[in-house]
Structure formats: structure tokens, C-alpha cells
């Protein structure tokens, strides 16, 4: 055996590694558009949402919250950048106020986001994992990742909770439409083990805001 022969074999056989199927272009485009419009901070969307005919009422509410979530994260990031850019070495009252405002925005969006997840987890035991349910889960997963990436997320307890929720949402997002009870059981066991529901409810001070 020579290096050349091995390279020849490799060149040919490597091309057959994970051969991709035809990309579902339209489905992906629709999903991308939906996520982008949900993340768009257009207040008018929230007012229009109830008139949209959706199978589940909380989806409409969720779309509005997603818009607020994106706006809140945007404010948090913007004020973070502003603080970095203009803050002199001496702390001034204005900076404190900016920081307080952005923390408040973060708290608000986090509470709304956690309420949406709480609703989803409640539905998990009764709803079929159809495409709409999975789509909502993926939106929540994406928003969870946005929150985790936010420089304004300074509460370690909230961060840990979001990380655990991210794991749960990944599992739910991978559920097949006719997933058996065992799959859901596994997710429920994971949630029970991490005390997700009680931690989630503790983190939502006055109950769902949506």
C-alpha cells in the first residue's frame, strides 16, 4: 500500500460521507421569515396578533412577546454599548440609571420569555408534537439563546435556569410528530431531576405576564 493509493481511496470515499439530501429551501425560507418577523420590534404586530387566525391563542400572544423580547434585548445591548463607549472612569449617577433601566428591561423580557416556556411545558403533556408546536419550541429555543448571549444577563441563577431550559427545548424540538410516551417521559424526568417547573415558577414573580 502506498500513500498515493490511500489518498486516491480517501478522495473517492470521502465524497460519500453524509451525502446531503435536497435542501427543503421553501420550508426553511418560511421559517427564517417567521423568525425574523417575530423578532422585529414592530409594536403594530402585537396589536394585530389577536386577529390572526392561529390554532392556539397563546401563539398569537407569543408572537407579540417575541417582538418585545427582541426589543428588550436590543435595548439591553444598545445601553451596554453606550455605557462602554461613554462611561468615564468615575461612576456617575446617569450611568447607574442607564444600567438600572437595562437591567429592568432584561428582567421584563426574561419574565415574559419564561412565561411562554412555562405555557409550552404545560402543553407538552397534552399537545401533539405537530409542526406548529415544534415551530413554537424552536422560536423559544432561539430566543433563549439570544437571552443567554446578552451581556445584560448577569443573574447567575437566571443564567443556569435558561441553560437548563435550553437543553429541554432542544429535546422537545427534536420530538417526532408521533413521539411515544417514552420520549415525553424522558423529557419530564429531565425536568423533574432539575426541578425545572418549580424553578421556572419561582423566577416568574407575579405569574405569567402574557
Amino acid at each position: 500500500m502506498t500513500d498515493d493509493r490511500f489518498d486516491e481511496f480517501l478522495d473517492q470515499a470521502a465524497k460519500e460521507y453524509n451525502p446531503p439530501p435536497e435542501p427543503p429551501r421553501e420550508a426553511m425560507w418560511q421559517a427564517i421569515q417567521a423568525r425574523r418577523s417575530a423578532a422585529s420590534p414592530r409594536v403594530v404586530d402585537i396589536r394585530e396578533a389577536p386577529s390572526i387566525r392561529l390554532g392556539r391563542p397563546w401563539l398569537a400572544i407569543g408572537m407579540g412577546i417575541a417582538a418585545i423580547l427582541a426589543l428588550g434585548i436590543g435595548i439591553g445591548r444598545w445601553s451596554g454599548l453606550q455605557t462602554k463607549a461613554v462611561t468615564p472612569p468615575v461612576t456617575v449617577a446617569g450611568t447607574d440609571r442607564t444600567s438600572e433601566r437595562s437591567q429592568l428591561a432584561m428582567q421584563l423580557v426574561a419574565t415574559m420569555h419564561l412565561s411562554r416556556i412555562d405555557n409550552l411545558l404545560t402543553d407538552l403533556s397534552t399537545q401533539k408534537a405537530d409542526s406548529e408546536f415544534i415551530h413554537t419550541t424552536r422560536d423559544l429555543l432561539s430566543d433563549t439563546r439570544l437571552l443567554l448571549d446578552s451581556p445584560r444577563l448577569t443573574d447567575p441563577k437566571l443564567k443556569r435556569l435558561l441553560e437548563d431550559l435550553e437543553t429541554i427545548l432542544v429535546q422537545i424540538a427534536q420530538l417526532k410528530p408521533h413521539a411515544g410516551a417514552e420520549d415525553r417521559e424522558l423529557i419530564n424526568d429531565g425536568m423533574a431531576h432539575k426541578e425545572i417547573r418549580s424553578r421556572l415558577r419561582n423566577a416568574i414573580p407575579a405569574g405569567p405576564t402574557a
Partner: peptide, 28 residues
């Protein structure tokens, strides 16, 4: 660009759902 992104993602993960999710994340 979608074909190239999807193909690369699929080659890396070998899973249709994940490749689709990563392609969407990429374009967002």
C-alpha cells in the same frame, strides 16, 4: 447561498433536522 450552507451543515452533522435548524439559524 442556501444550498452551500445546508450542504456543509448536513455534511458536518449527518442529520436532516439539525442541518435544517442550523441553516435557518445561519440565515437569521
Amino acid at each position: 447561498h442556501v444550498d452551500r450552507v445546508y450542504r456543509t451543515a448536513y455534511r458536518m452533522v449527518g442529520d436532516q433536522d439539525l442541518a435544517q435548524e442550523y441553516t435557518q439559524d445561519t440565515f437569521v
